[in-house]
Design a protein around this nucleic acid. Sequence first.
DNA 1: TTTACTGCAAACAATTTGCACTGCA
DNA 2: TGCAGTGCAAATTGTTTGCAGTAAA
Lengths: 143, 143
Amino acid sequence: MTARVRDIRQAFGAERMTAQRETLARVAGAMGGAFTIDDLAAEVRKREITLGLATVYRGVAALERTGWLERVGERDGSALFARCRAGGHHHHLICTGCGRIEAADCPLEEIVGPAESATGFVVTGHEITLYGLCPDCASAQRD
Amino acid sequence: MTARVRDIRQAFGAERMTAQRETLARVAGAMGGAFTIDDLAAEVRKREITLGLATVYRGVAALERTGWLERVGERDGSALFARCRAGGHHHHLICTGCGRIEAADCPLEEIVGPAESATGFVVTGHEITLYGLCPDCASAQRD
DNA sequence: TTTACTGCAAACAATTTGCACTGCA
DNA sequence: TGCAGTGCAAATTGTTTGCAGTAAA
């Protein structure tokens, strides 16, 4: 689950690599689910490392730029990010209980076609995020 | 397109109706598409009416509570709202050219069902946004 | 040596809230 | 009349930015 060294090295693409950025990529890669900037900063702090909040924001933005991280939605007004390894076109299911994230297939054709003909738009991209409870959290809630 | 009197009366459900709220519901109902709080406030101002910004926020929240308005996404960090047909699921198309937004019906079940059975999640909410070019921008781009 | 990255604090923008006041029901 | 709704301004909150110092390349 933890990101490998090769991944970390490539996380920032052609941009400059620093100790802070390595920490950022490493911790983000080990988060295991969707996380906010605050979650990430807290996790970094747990490792006894201090990073300026602005550095975290800028680092995450850079990781998003290279595609290493993906913005997958929002929670309580904060942006949610995740390292998603699923290849190809897909969307995300985010567990509102534990932040766990799963990839979901995209029923693109069934949505886009009708939408285009109904509105005259030419659809070039889209974003679909589903929120819910993963099996564990769902069963925990039933107790 | 303009909301009828009956609609306005029911917009706030059992909550108290005031002159400000009537204005709010009337203007929101006449917006024709998605709008931000700011758009709405500006439109109200055009009618030579003054409403406190907090009143607009609280009024929109109330309209959302009753289902009369729906939060449909965000633009430049501001929440986007729209008056949508009650009950029906739908998604939105955002024009990357001019920012114009259109709503279209959406067969949500076709996304949620398969996603739930594939992952074991219980889906409780969703965010769907399509990006593309509206007819005007699409033809402008061809020139 | 160049200049991108960092940290801090101040700046920002959207939204919320406290409080006294007003006016529906 | 009572209490929900209003208006203002101050407070919050997530995020961005200016700037001087530090360190990759």
